[in-house]
């Protein structure tokens, strides 16, 4: 015979669980650090290998043209018999280094404009905000086309286009952070003690925004690379013999209907992986910089 105790125990074991706690792993700083190091090294290696492969990528072998992927040519060959793997790696290197360069310039511009807005008085602030509004008021790609055209297309055109259009988002963050910092007691004290705007910017404002700035900079990289690829794809970039990833893809477009799938699928997938790597790198860095906060 069941005792009341047994009944109670039986019931409690059948009692509905209202909230089942899930086990969630906290973001691991060690894993983030490992990710940053691994991806950083991998991307550096890619740049180095790409630089070495650049001459190989130009070699044409008309005996081996339009080959599908095989062991000898993992990415196949194109209509001139060039090895697509080395072309892809060389193209990625070019695209990535161009993107990195342009993103650095854009970030520098946003830092300078943030300082000007924060310290240059209301007129300068209004000018910077106005510039941000105008740049963001045009579709990004239209502006990219315009600027790259203004600088004569080519390498310089693409780099300038990305540098001059990519800054507003980061500039907005930098500006608002700096405005916050400008109102703090130590900046007010420094100003009262007679420090000029340049000195205040260098000693107080820039160090204050530095973590945010670095994270924003790294998160600009994927954007910059995608935009570089888009511009070269549209034909605003480099001459066709230079293997940039966008021009490789726009060239392969002509061979789509002949069934040469590897010319489009594999270089594009490599580009996506590269962008994804930069993106994960940036996000891990952001988590490290904000001490596990959400960003």
């Amino acid at each position: 015979m069941a005792t009341p105790y047994d009944v109670a125990r039986e019931r409690s074991s059948r009692a509905p669980v209202i909230v089942a706690p899930h086990a969630h792993a906290l973001p691991s700083r060690r894993a983030d650090l490992a990710r940053v190091l691994a991806l950083g090294t991998a991307l550096m290696l890619l740049l180095a290998v790409g630089a070495v492969l650049a001459p190989v990528a130009q070699e044409a072998d008309f005996l081996a043209k339009n080959l599908p992927p095989s062991l000898a040519h993992p990415f196949g060959t194109d209509w001139m018999g060039r090895d697509m793997l080395s072309r892809t790696v060389a193209g990625l290197t070019l695209s990535a280094s161009l993107g990195l360069l342009a993103a650095l310039a854009a970030a520098g511009l946003s830092l300078v404009l943030g300082c000007v807005a924060a310290l240059g008085g209301p007129a300068a602030d209004a000018f910077v905000s106005g510039a941000i509004d105008v740049v963001m008021g045009l579709p990004h790609l239209v502006l990219l086309i315009l600027v790259s055209f203004a600088f004569g297309k080519g390498f310089v055109g693409v780099a300038m286009a990305i540098a001059l259009t990519e800054w507003p988002r980061l500039a907005r963050v930098v500006r608002s952070e700096m405005l916050q910092c400008r109102g703090s007691d130590y900046v007010l004290a420094a100003r009262r003690l007679g420090q000029g705007p340049v000195r205040v910017a260098a000693r107080h404002l820039v160090p204050y925004v530095l973590p945010q700035f670095v994270v924003g900079l790294v998160l600009l990289f994927p954007h910059a690379i995608i935009h570089e690829a888009s511009l070269t794809f549209l034909g605003f970039g480099l001459p066709p013999e230079v293997p940039a990833i966008g021009s490789i893809l726009s060239e392969s477009m002509a061979y789509l209907s002949t069934g040469a799938w590897w010319l489009v699928a594999l270089p594009g997938a490599a580009l996506v992986l590269c962008v994804l790597a930069f993106d994960i790198l940036g996000r891990s860095l952001a988590r490290l910089a904000t001490r596990g906060g959400a960003l």
């Binding site: 690829a229 888009s230 893809l249 789509l256 799938w261 489009v264 996506v272 994804l276």
Partner: peptide, 29 residues
């Protein structure tokens, strides 16, 4: 979604064109 933010739209379009228009022939080129 994270993957999609890393995929350039023109590549997605190229792949779609290749699969659905060239290989399968469901859509015009």
């Amino acid at each position: 979604c994270f993957a999609m933010t890393s995929i350039p739209s023109f590549w997605l379009a190229l792949i779609a064109l290749m699969v659905f228009a060239v290989a399968l022939g469901w859509f015009p080129i």
